[in-house]
Structure formats: structure tokens, C-alpha cells
Design a protein around this nucleic acid. Structure first.
Lengths: 229, 229
DNA sequence: CTAGTTAGTGTTAACTATACACATAGTATC
DNA sequence: GATACTATGTGTATAGTTAACACTAACTAG
């Protein structure tokens, strides 16, 4: 095989460029939400897409992902994990570009101010269940991110990145139920969580019109392999 | 942040180029081997490295991985899976390049003829345990590949891609023991394998100086999630 | 003080994983 | 052809884990 053949429009890019696309999840109002942007220009104008951008020459791929997150949601210290690289030739119809996708988790959206950039018309949270057609191959990326999140929820303590500093066990169980999309048994859930020794007591709820729950916090947020289910 | 700043030597690549690196495993003489090449030129001359190459503009990333495999080992229909993308700025000291790594498994090296290319001095199998310093960040890639293989061995039927068409249960158990690096109980192993209903009988061994084993083959080589251990 | 709401708590049964030892079917050798 | 050698092939009992299940407790609102 030789270098020069086919696809004249691609010829100017001797090798392919690379970009990062982000799947940023947060639990909002009892639903799993993901951050989406509305495209302002050209081939997907007006359509929704995952946020992302080109990798610059002076930054590593991980740094690019973190920079993009910082630009969009204004924070730095959240869980970030590389997912998969999507490399079909025509995934972007205008130029050849490889997308390295990342998963990020936000534990609390209260202080998050979304920032749009020149390139986007709008940026917003959207419940994952309500996402329909996205631009590019972003539905595939989102699906991949969801399946990764589900499996890590089962065999790691990743849930700590989706809960605020202090939380009740009911909240924690709710997060599991939302993401795994099935009911869990309350007593078995609590037994399991306690047996894993991941959390410590942190006071109790106040001002609720029913029995207040005990609050807990994670002993550590370091990712660990634990059999949750 | 602006596009043009720092690192003059990188400036000519407005965005980073991408390449594929391959971790090709095979069981040879009761050991897990990986395919390595010896570098012919420049920064890592004479050192060992994983085989790989640039992604061309007219091929997808997956196609690139398959082409590279075809070029090196001459075959097409083997198990291939993307692993992870390594994107540190200086991972290749000469230019900025992102490596998308792939895992490939060869079930039988009997008919494999290794082909070197102009770029390499040599290509050879090497037992994973005997691999020392590799060029670039290839030790890290190899380590990642090994851990992926181990975990897939535990929760999928991936072992079918490391066994010849017909095999004995002892052989199969040996592959697990080699990769997981621990002894397994023969009776429990067999019980498990039979209960998963993955294999069917396929004759018996001949010409061995001891009780001949029954041979089996996989009902399907399609990757399935099964709790092996 | 009653109703409403969510929190919190143990036990049993079914299933799964683990530990463990000896007889069998061949070949090679004397 | 008897014996030694070698790797194959097989079952059971115990410990541990998972899954199913319903009622009392603590608080607020009216």
C-alpha cells in the first residue's frame, strides 16, 4: 500500500488529527444527566453533540480532556477516565479526525456554571434517557460511556464521584438504581456497603418532614476494585 | 490559550499525528509470548519495541490495526481489540504522536511466518516474562494489555482465541494458569467449563505416551460475558 | 395526637465456590 | 506380558455468598 491514493479531500492531512470528546455525567433531580452542546456551525448546525475539541501540540491527551472540562464546567478536580478511541474515516464528514473519548463525573452541580464558547450556540445538561440523535458518532460514544459507568458501578467504588461530600444511604442506593436501572433491596444494599468499609458516619439530615437519615462520607475517593454487586 | 506557543520542533504538526501499536499474544511452549520488533533507526536503534505504524488517511483505526497485523504475521481472522490511547507529549522523543494500542490473540503459531519490514531489523516472539526495557512507553502498553487479557480471561470466553481448533481440557486449564499466574483446581475447572456449555467433544488425542485426553472445540468463538472465575 | 413519610434493621433458604484423593488408559521398558 | 510411568478423568462435603422478605422507628404537618 502506498501513501497517496483515494479521497482527494483528505490528502492535505497526511496523517489524521485527533480530538477529545467528553461524556460528563451528573445526577440531577434523580436522573442521570450528561452535558451536551448545540452546534453553531456547518455540518451539524443546530444539532446536539458531546463537548470536545482538538488536542493541541503542547498538551497530552489527558491534559486536553481536563482543559476542556475546565473550560466547560469551570472545575478541575473531578473524576476523569479515558474511554475509547473512535476512528472511522468518515465519522466527521468534513475532515478526517480521530476522537479519543473521556468519561467525567460530577458529584454536585450546585456550584457549576456552564460556559459556552465561541464555537457553540448553547451548553446544557440533559437527562440521558431523553437524548435522541446526536451529531457525529456521539450516540455511540454516549452508549459506550454508559456501559462503562454501569460496569464500574458494579465492581468499583466509583459511585463516590457521583455523590456530594455528605450523603445518606438512600441517596447512594438511588444513584445505583438510576444508573443500573433496576430496584435494589434496601437491607442487602446496606449490608453490602457496610461490609466494604468504604464510608464513615458524618452527622444527620436536618429539616426534612420525616425521620432524618444518618449522613455518611467516603473514607477515600481513590478508585478501588470492590465487588459491589 | 492560543494555538502557536512553545516547542518549536512541534510547530510543523499543527495537530498531533496518530499511530497504532500492537500487543500480539500467543501461547508458545507453555509460555505467554508477545511479538516484538527490533528498531533499525534513530532514537531507539537496536532496542525492542511493539510493532506498529502510522494510521493512514484512507483507513479507519481498526483497519490500520488489522493491516499491521496482516503485514507482520500474514493472517487476517484473529481476535483484535482496541486497548487504550497513550498521549503523552514526549512519548516519542522525535515527534508528537498519539498511540492507539490494540490487543491481538493468535491461537496457533504453527503456520505463522513472521515478516520483517524495511523499518525493522528483526521481528520475533518473546516470552512476556523475559521482556525488559522496551522503546517508547511500550512497557506501559504491554502491562496494560496483560491486565486487560487477565481480566477478560476471568469474565469472558476470550480463551477460545488462544487455543487451537481442537484442544484438551488440560491445555485449556494450562492457558488459564499461565496467564493468571496461579494454579487452578482441575476438578473445579472442568465443572465450571462444562457448566458454561461453551465446548463440544471433538475426538481424542493420539500418539501420546500416557492416557490420551478427550479433545474439545468451542461451539462459538463469539466473545461472550461468562463468569469463568 | 394522628396521619404521613422516609429511615433503619435480621433471618432464612438457595446457590456458588472451594478443598480435597484416587482410579483409569494409554506407552515404554524389561 | 508384567511393571513402571505419566497424564487424564471423576464426586462429595463444607464454607461462604447472594437473594428474598416485612415490620418498627423517628421525625413533621396539620
Amino acid at each position: 500500500m502506498k501513501k497517496k491514493e483515494k479521497k482527494p479531500e483528505f490528502e492535505k492531512y497526511e496523517y489524521s488529527a485527533a480530538a477529545v470528546d467528553l461524556v460528563i455525567f451528573a445526577i440531577i433531580n434523580g436522573e442521570l444527566n450528561t452535558l451536551l452542546i448545540k452546534m453553531k456551525y456547518k455540518p451539524f448546525q443546530g444539532e446536539l453533540a458531546l463537548p470536545g475539541g482538538r488536542i493541541r501540540v503542547y498538551e497530552s491527551v489527558d491534559e486536553c480532556a481536563k482543559r476542556e472540562i475546565k473550560e466547560k464546567v469551570g472545575i478541575n478536580n473531578i473524576y476523569v477516565e479515558q474511554l475509547y478511541s473512535f476512528g472511522d474515516i468518515k465519522r466527521d464528514p468534513s475532515i478526517r479526525i480521530i476522537s479519543i473519548s473521556y468519561l467525567a463525573l460530577i458529584d454536585n452541580t450546585d456550584n457549576i456554571k456552564l460556559k459556552t464558547t465561541e464555537k457553540y450556540e448553547e451548553i446544557c445538561w440533559m437527562p440521558v434517557n431523553k437524548v435522541h440523535k446526536l451529531a457525529y458518532d456521539h450516540n455511540e460514544i454516549l452508549k459506550y460511556a454508559l456501559s462503562r459507568l454501569k460496569s464500574k458501578l458494579i465492581y468499583t467504588n466509583i459511585v463516590c464521584n457521583l455523590l456530594p461530600k455528605k450523603f445518606s444511604l438512600s441517596e447512594m442506593q438511588r444513584v445505583h438504581e438510576i444508573i443500573l436501572d433496576r430496584k435494589l433491596d434496601k437491607r442487602n444494599f446496606r449490608k453490602k456497603v457496610f461490609s466494604l468499609d468504604l464510608i464513615k458516619e458524618a452527622g444527620r439530615e436536618e429539616g426534612v418532614p420525616h425521620r432524618p437519615s444518618k449522613l455518611y462520607s467516603f473514607k477515600t475517593k481513590k478508585l478501588m476494585i470492590v465487588e459491589m454487586f
